[in-house]
């Protein structure tokens, strides 16, 4: 078995210093749900893990001015119940809830889900849809003892399956975004291989807002596990904006999304199935956030999904 040391950090400064200690290759350990599996599979690229899961500053969900801030070591279970998130980003709670397994949601962290950068991860598409920013502590000074705090859009950190652009020796501290206003509907949809424990084969995060006349004032759409990395589908969003919602329009949006996917990822064995499923999911997501009959759309839709 791979032999490595363990050290627990009590503060961000200590964690960054430990991660940048000379002569050692260190890895961040948060919830362990991905790292422990990698260790078991023979991962040997580090000689020490730095446990950041108990750092108080990384464990908070709070308002930072008008922005909602979620610490990187906050667990999925904490997210799915928190009033600020249920109010301001309900679809993030839905995404964490979609994992379904208490044992995993009690351990898995938001920062870990982003840093692991699995193509099929549940929360990154939602963070991208929220235009969330990551706050990262990067090493500065002797052995990184006086870290610098930087900000970067979450979308810019995700570089494809299992690839991220977090600076070397840096540590994810928190995610920040503007909470959604009550008029903005939001949805998270997931198509998985089986119900429990599943990482998504395709997921969709979407938000939408209509003006007084019912036309689409704002819409954001992100598909996970379909493109090389989760990003806003600006092409589709632009096509929808300003239009009155209709089944035909949503079908067209689904077709456009499907073409974009094929264009970007090419034809694969799974494309036939996946592209059609994607189109159908886009339609469903748009129906959820831009209801044709807003007065009839109720929470019941969401409850039936949970």
């Amino acid at each position: 078995m791979n032999s490595f040391g363990y050290v627990r950090a009590d503060s961000v400064e200590e964690a960054v210093a430990l991660l940048n200690a000379p002569g050692l290759t260190s890895r961040v350990l948060a919830g362990g749900t991905d790292l422990m599996v990698a260790v078991r599979a023979g991962e040997t690229s580090f000689d020490r893990v730095v446990d950041i899961s108990m750092i108080p500053a990384l464990r908070r969900i709070e308002m930072n001015g008008a922005r909602l801030r979620i610490g990187a070591a906050v667990t999925f279970s904490e997210i799915m119940r928190h009033p600020l998130i249920l109010q301001g980003a309900r679809f993030l709670a839905d995404a964490t809830h979609s994992v379904r397994t208490m044992q995993v949601t009690n351990a898995a962290t938001l920062g870990g889900n982003v840093a692991n950068a699995a193509a099929a991860a549940d929360t990154p598409p939602v963070l991208v849809c929220l235009d969330a920013e990551a706050i990262i502590a990067t090493p500065q000074g002797e052995h990184g003892s006086a870290p610098l705090w930087e900000r970067a859009p979450v979308a810019s950190l995700l570089r494809g399956h299992l690839k991220h652009a977090i600076p070397a020796g840096g540590l994810l501290i928190a995610f920040e975004f503007d909470p959604l206003v009550p008029e903005t509907r939001n949805t998270f949809l997931k198509l998985g291989r089986r119900n429990a424990l599943t990482i998504s084969r395709i997921n969709i995060a979407a938000t939408g807002r209509q003006d007084n006349a019912g036309a689409i004032a704002d819409v954001r759409l992100v598909a996970g596990a379909c493109f090389s990395r989760p990003r806003r589908a600006h092409e589709v969003e632009a096509m929808l904006r300003g239009q009155p919602p209709s089944a035909a329009l949503f079908a067209e949006a689904g077709q456009l999304m499907m073409r974009l996917m094929v264009q970007e990822t090419g034809q694969r064995w799974s494309t036939e199935y996946k592209s059609r499923a994607l189109a159908a999911m886009v339609e469903e997501a748009l129906e959820n956030v831009l209801p044709l009959h807003p007065e009839m759309a109720t929470e019941a839709v969401r409850e039936s999904m949970r």
């Binding site: 363990y6 627990r8 350990l29 919830g31 362990g32 749900t33 422990m36 599996v37 893990v49 446990d51 899961s53 279970s77 208490m102 044992q103 995993v104 009690n106 351990a107």
Partner: peptide, 17 residues
């Protein structure tokens, strides 16, 4: 672990310190 159910195969032993 601290009252919450987890998979002990995914917890690194020294994490329970």
């Amino acid at each position: 672990l601290d009252g919450r159910v987890v998979n002990s195969c995914l917890v690194l032993a020294p994490q329970v310190n």
